[in-house]
Design a protein around this nucleic acid. Sequence first.
DNA 1: GAAAAAACGAGAGCACCGCTCTTGACTTGG
DNA 2: CCAAGTCAAGAGCGGTGCTCTCGTTTTTTC
Lengths: 234, 234
Amino acid sequence: MTASRTARERVRAELTREITDIARRQLATEGAGGLSLRAVAREMGMVSSAIYRYFPSRDDLLTRLIIDGYNALGEAVEQAEAPVPRGDHLGRWLAACHGLRDWAVAHPHEYALLYGSPVPGYQAPVETVAARARDVTVLGAIVSDAHAAAALRPAGDTPPPPAEAAADAGNLRGLMPGLPDELVWRAITAWATLYGWVNLEVFGQLNNTVEARQPVFEHAMRVAATTLGLVSTE
Amino acid sequence: MTASRTARERVRAELTREITDIARRQLATEGAGGLSLRAVAREMGMVSSAIYRYFPSRDDLLTRLIIDGYNALGEAVEQAEAPVPRGDHLGRWLAACHGLRDWAVAHPHEYALLYGSPVPGYQAPVETVAARARDVTVLGAIVSDAHAAAALRPAGDTPPPPAEAAADAGNLRGLMPGLPDELVWRAITAWATLYGWVNLEVFGQLNNTVEARQPVFEHAMRVAATTLGLVSTE
DNA sequence: GAAAAAACGAGAGCACCGCTCTTGACTTGG
DNA sequence: CCAAGTCAAGAGCGGTGCTCTCGTTTTTTC
């Protein structure tokens, strides 16, 4: 009933952890394609077939890493946004953006696993979907809070929301409670800007083009916040 | 002196073309990881080592496909934007955006090769950089033309441009002649929105979330255009 | 027109990969 | 104490990118 019953279970949990740790390190250095069960086994002093006692296939190990990655990213965003006063919606948005970007720049291969091109031959199982929502939940809460506090600039000159996508907006409202369609789509557009920028940077599209990444990112996120309707608190 | 001198050169060009065609088809169906020199050779009725007479390595074949992909994407964007009257800057922007998205949705694996996570172990050579500029050149021309025609809404409420990135703005002005820094960064932000949205869609992040893709994309690009300062011509 | 040079396809082979199956030793619970 | 379950190890299958050698054929050179 306690944490670990038998000695066998304890050493099994320990070895499973060691496998994922080594795999994560290989992922960080070599990238997703360089993740090799045989290399992990070699580093553990095991024979390759022994790994299959712990992970039935390479894809299952990859799934474990993806879920861990989503959680690590989500936690990073949460921790970056948490210290900001709840009423400072623009500050919360910027903090969350920087939290996401900083984590992505620090863990480029893991970020690529989450938001980059799908790994060839790998089909993401349902388990990964639950973990994915963590970072976007933070973003959604900011927009919801700002709208509830009437701190969002009204529609004004923004184009009308797409009527054909009313059902989709309903789905998304789970992440952004209380928001009208027009604001849901403004928020999604801001997210596209956020993830789009991070993708451009992490995937190397800005090499030899933009060097002062941090200030330009900050500026872009401020522009996105303005479009979203977040106004400075001062 | 003519197009093809010897018979050997003619058949060599023909075989090279056949290799890239088969490789592109494999890339489209299996993805980048499923691209196998042996499979290409098998389909051609050749032995695997013979392929190396035409491409010294798998990476060189990949480079060829990447360059072809950039050109195909650039051409798609050009053709989508060309028919729009030059003075209708918003229409040109929207047409270019749809051209990019349509091509990406039609060729997801090729798009992933261009704008997704880098292929593990593959280092993009310099040849690919030249081809890359084609789509962004179209986008840059639209913004430049709009600014030259004084059709861009002035700064207004947008945040001040990052002073630390003045040198970067200078580099980027090659794509957007005549634009002040503030507009360069507004344009880059709009591009991040564009590529960010397409990435989200092509890489499957919108599955089970946004179904009415085309209208929502259209709306997002209109929002981005408004942020960029492009106003409707009517 | 014959000889030298270059290009070519085929084949064997190397080291690696994911994965399967069997074997023998060990731990656990009845 | 012994049967059941768990484990690491090893051999092996088919796949990969890539290298090297070996005849053959085509092109170039004299």
